[in-house]
Amino acid sequence: MRILKDLFNLFYPKLCANCDHQLTMNEKAICTFCRHDLPLTNFTNYSDNKITKTFYGRISIEKANSLLFYRKVGITKKLIHELKYKGNEEVGVFFGNWLGEILVDNNEFSDIDIIIPVPLHPKKRRERGYNQVTKFGIRLSNHLKKPFLEDILLRTSTSKTQTFKARFERFNNNDTKFQLSDLTAFKNKHILLIDDVITTGATLEACAKELQKTEGVKISILTMAYTE
Rank of each mutant, 00 (worst) to 15 (best):
I3C: 10
L4I: 14
D6C: 11
L10I: 12
K14H: 13
L15V: 14
H21L: 14
E27P: 06
A29Y: 07
H36W: 02
D37P: 00
D48A: 14
N49I: 05
N49Q: 12
I61G: 09
E62G: 12
E62S: 15
K63H: 10
A64N: 11
Y70M: 04
T76S: 15
K77D: 00
K77W: 02
L79I: 10
E82G: 15
K84N: 02
Y85W: 05
F95T: 00
F95E: 06
G96P: 04
N97I: 05
L99C: 03
D105N: 10
D111G: 00
I112S: 03
I115A: 03
I115S: 06
I116R: 13
V118W: 01
L120F: 10
R128I: 01
G129D: 04
T134Q: 07
T134S: 12
K135C: 01
S141H: 11
L144N: 10
L149H: 13
T156E: 06
S157T: 15
K165V: 03
A166I: 01
A166Q: 12
E169Y: 02
R170Y: 10
F171I: 05
N172F: 13
L183F: 11
L183M: 11
I191E: 01
L193M: 07
I194Y: 09
D196V: 05
V197N: 02
I198N: 06
A206C: 02
C207E: 05
L211F: 02
E215P: 01
K218L: 13
